[in-house]
Design a protein around this nucleic acid. Structure first.
Lengths: 327, 327
DNA sequence: ATGAAAGCGCTAACAA
DNA sequence: TTGTTAGCGCTTTCAT
């Protein structure tokens, strides 16, 4: 493996000239530039990135933590990747599998300077822990976090849930249930509040049995309907955070002979590719845009960091109710 | 940000002693070890990974290219990650989105020494192109590749397809169709061969209309049934590579009033989480195991590379027909 | 058991 | 326009 010294020697120039050619520096004579480039091509030389990173003190790489490869995160990720490559950044993906250790491992990359910043699409670690890594580089979360040391780009889940509930009540529903992912996340709490607020306004009773937790995949949707079929009184409508879960619900509802929306109305979340095929009414959170903005926030902080003391940024992304025929 | 020199100074020792403490080297007096460790803790010091990588000439990181976050790749990935972390390796994920440039970008990481090896879960680039990077480190693909310069860990798709077809013919089916992903991949060709071989043996006619291409997601399954419903003669059984597509087929088949397996028998592939919920008969390719073996192959090559000229490895992973009630 | 010093491969300030 | 040289932060001989 040739290094820059070899190239310099073979081209009969100094290493600095090679370095200048490499970085497209203007002050190089056309003749030497050509000569150097020729040696580079012929030797198949590429600079050792570790050396470059070491001396530059940056890697032009942003880390992204996703807990799983769920399409929800995939949508955000695609937004991040687009903007990152636009800005000349690479993307280092880290799958935490909801494991705190794995997650801290990723945070560690920031300390050891393997990445310039970090975007968390979800978190398992405490806010305190995450914030403690803030000194090593910009950290951006894709869910709202109170802490002042961390930036976030997020959906207002309370408002979004209210919008979904309203849409159902406007269609005459009062027996409404909902399905969420992890029960104790910040968003789940906001959703619970929205749910109870609307129910209270309606003077409708709250039936705890109609709240389905830990639903993230299609199979969870199937399970939910199986459980519903055994209830003495079933909800007439369901708010489902995640269109894959909604797909499972529709699948099993059909198998059980329920018509949609007559017997069961559904409002989903995320507006994935299947959502359209299923004619699902859903709340589009513009996940891709969340990813894009997350990168922008990182980038802004990074640029600000050079000059002033970059403050953190909180940015809410508007959602949109996409009406189809499941309500 | 303190560096090793600062730590040495603060602890009143040389940098070598700090380095020894860092790497758990035996020849350090208990007293100095404690003193150094104390300074390290108090300063919150962590070695700069770029410097370590530079001098060691390795990163203890393996790159993984996945085209998308489809659960098929996720299953392989989880196998890779398990074995990697077991062996003290980090995993750098790269989403190529079937884009040749992105894919080459990942190959480039090998040249620039940011990763020690690379596992491709799928490829868009030519075999030639990929093989040309083989000199920079071990490359392992998770699909069969003829080329001698590249290792692969794979399912024998011909045999697997034969097994699926046989299972259907044993249940009396002769009007069999199938759904595949990318039409021109190596595996698709093998499957086509298996399909025609079985049909020929049966003296059954081949109906090109019953071959559905470009099906990877649930929505594709929906589309397939919509198309099938318009046919004058429908297949009575379907072999579907990908249980998410199968889920879409089941969903839409139910909506169209087809009973499974009476009106339409289905053999899926992959045995995902939903497969069990859907009572889907499916061919489990042991994707996780493929991922595990892919890492092992990388690791073996890497270790061999130190001493001898490490040859490449081809390793076939056995599949398994999981019988449930969709046939 | 410890330290001095060479060097991993590169960039950039400085001199020429 | 070009070359010399001093690091970037670390590991690892080689002495002692």
């Amino acid at each position: 493996m040739a290094n820059i010294k070899d190239i310099a020697m073979l081209a009969g120039v100094s290493v600095s000239t090679v370095s200048r050619v490499l970085s497209g520096h203007p002050y190089v004579s056309e003749e030497k530039r050509r000569r150097v480039q020729q040696v580079i091509d012929q030797q198949g030389y590429t600079p050792n990135a570790n050396a470059v990173h070491l001396i530059k003190g940056q890697t032009k790489t942003i880390g992204v933590i996703v807990p799983s490869s769920h399409s929800y995160f995939h949508a955000i990720l695609s937004g991040i990747m687009d903007e990152a490559s636009e800005a000349g950044y690479g993307t280092l993906l880290y799958q935490s599998r909801y494991d705190r250790n794995e997650e801290e491992q990723a945070l560690h990359l920031l300390r050891t300077k393997q990445i310039d910043g970090l975007i968390l699409c979800s978190r398992s670690l405490s806010v305190e822990k995450i914030a403690s890594y803030g000194t090593y580089g910009p950290i951006v979360t894709c869910e709202y976090i109170e802490d002042e040391r961390i930036s976030s780009v997020y959906t207002d889940h309370y408002d979004a849930f209210i919008a979904g509930m309203k849409h159902l009540t406007e269609h005459g529903h009062t027996d409404i249930g909902y399905c969420i992912g992890r029960a104790h996340s910040t968003s789940s709490q906001q959703r619970y509040k929205a749910y109870t607020d609307v129910l209270a306004e309606l003077d409708a009773p709250l039936n705890p049995e109609w709240i389905f937790e830990d639903s993230t995949e299609m199979k969870d949707g199937i399970r939910i309907v199986e459980r519903m079929m055994n209830m003495k009184k079933r909800p007439t409508a369901l708010l489902i955070t995640g269109d894959e879960v909604a797909a499972g619900v529709i699948l099993q509802a059909q198998a059980a002979g329920l018509r949609i929306p007559e017997d069961l109305a559904i409002v989903g979340f995320d507006n994935l590719l299947i959502s359209e095929a299923l004619k699902l009414t859903t709340i589009d959170q513009h996940l891709k845009r969340i990813g894009q903005e997350a990168f922008h926030v990182f980038h802004e902080m990074r640029k600000a960091g050079q000059t002033s003391t970059g403050g953190t940024i909180k940015r809410s992304i508007p959602f949109e109710l996409v009406k189809r025929s499941s309500v």
